[in-house]
Amino acid sequence: MASLIPCPHCGPRPKEEFTVRGAVLPRPAADAPVEEWQAHVYLRENPRGDYAEHWHHSGGCRRWLVVKRNTATHAVHSVTDAAEGRP
């Protein structure tokens, strides 16, 4: 199986066990203008290179993870729990 994602809770697992939500982006303020919210919800870069995404380990521990990877080489730089460092 290609594309093993090293889940911090479960160990290396194939990408088929995960569901990708999309890029990790700072959330606009609740009263931000509608254009800013429109961009936040719909507009995405499609970079060739390093990218940070929210992945859900839906077939495993069911935790949300932050996967930092390279879209060109498929190298996975780091995988952390999305709740890490939050209050």
């Binding site: 479960c10 697992r13 066990e17 077939g59 495993g60 521990c61 069911r62």
Partner: peptide, 9 residues
């Protein structure tokens, strides 16, 4: 381990 067996959780 919670995992997939084929497509079955």
């Amino acid at each position: 381990a919670q995992t997939l067996f084929g497509h079955l959780g």
